[in-house]
């Protein structure tokens, strides 16, 4: 099982060069049954990452480019009257894929956004009075452009919370970029990629991640971190219990990828920033008094 996981990581690293840490976190997110928000400028490989993940894990993939006129039905699916059977037939939307890339999610209207986010949370879709389960595994990668732009609907805080992690890829390092420029086109490489894991194996990994041990000493550390965000004067509110659970889930998955059966503080530290940074609300936007997730992490002693 772990060999397959290693192979998947190697394959991914061959496609997206110089981003081992981010790829590992993306994989962690997937194994922790969370959804991923990538916040980055266009062209750094967000779509390629999503495609590569789908390919390596042997999952089917759908991509939706979000625009302001996108309707919920465009994502969830719609019932169409078929003359042959003279009945309505449900045509599932892109959300019924195992990996869905929601590109520029903040361009869609709040109505569409919440339709997607609801589906993400419930892992099911209710259309025309019928509830349909989404496939397992189900993983949404949403991207958004961080620069301030006209005509975007920023995701509200409550919906940001639905994403287990927020990552940004950033520019590749020079060595990786040189290789990228000299090598063949990434899309060609993608098409040659063989799946390293089957969907059933992935589900098995997700189940294993839930069994990774979190000792009382580690729970104390998690509590100390949560308390630090709640007691800090620079933050409007601290992390919610849901954020605490998410943090534990991510740390468990991270430990699993590392080949361990127990979480250690380093796992928590590795996932803390991507899990938490989009959940911290500064008390006062104007002054720079709010701490970053990194500062919180550095201020809390490991018990």
């Amino acid at each position: 099982m772990n060999a397959a996981l290693k192979a998947a990581q190697t394959a991914l690293n061959a496609i997206i060069l110089g981003k081992e840490a981010q790829l590992r976190l993306a994989l962690t997110c997937l194994i922790a049954r969370g959804h991923l928000l990538i916040e980055d400028i266009p062209g750094v490989g967000k779509t390629t990452l999503a495609l590569a993940l789908a390919k390596v894990l042997g999952l089917d993939f759908q991509r939706v480019q979000f625009t302001s006129d996108l309707l919920p039905a465009d994502i969830l699916g719609v019932s169409i009257f078929e003359q042959a059977s003279s009945s309505f037939r449900f045509h599932p939307g892109p959300v019924f894929a195992q990996i869905m890339l929601a590109d520029e999610v903040n361009r869609a209207s709040p109505k569409t956004q919440s339709a997607l986010l609801e589906a993400m949370e419930e892992r099911q879709v209710t259309a025309e009075g019928e509830t349909r389960r989404l496939p397992e595994p189900f993983f949404v990668i949403a991207t958004q452009n961080p620069a301030h732009q006209i005509g975007v609907f920023p995701l509200p805080e409550s919906q940001l919370d639905r994403f287990l992690m927020r990552l940004s890829l950033g520019y590749p390092p020079v060595v990786a970029e040189r290789a990228l420029l000299m090598d063949r086109d990434r899309r060609d490489l993608l098409s040659e990629l063989a799946p390293s894991l089957r969907a059933a194996e992935l589900l098995e990994l997700q189940a294993q991640a839930r069994d990774v041990k979190t000792s009382p000493a580690l729970v104390e550390y998690l509590l100390a971190l949560l308390r630090a965000t709640r007691e800090h004067a620079g933050l409007r509110q601290g992390l919610s219990p849901r954020a605490g659970l998410a943090l534990r889930r991510a740390a468990q998955a991270f430990a699993l990828i590392d080949g361990r059966s127990a979480v250690i503080p380093e796992d928590v530290q590795a996932v803390f920033v991507p899990c938490v940074s989009h959940r911290l609300m500064p008390a006062n936007e104007a002054d720079g008094g709010a701490p970053t997730a990194e500062e919180i992490l550095a201020s809390v002693a490991i018990p």
Partner: peptide
């Protein structure tokens, strides 16, 4: 360091 994990 207080915030340094044992493995690190």
């Amino acid at each position: 360091r207080p915030d340094e994990g044992p493995r690190d």
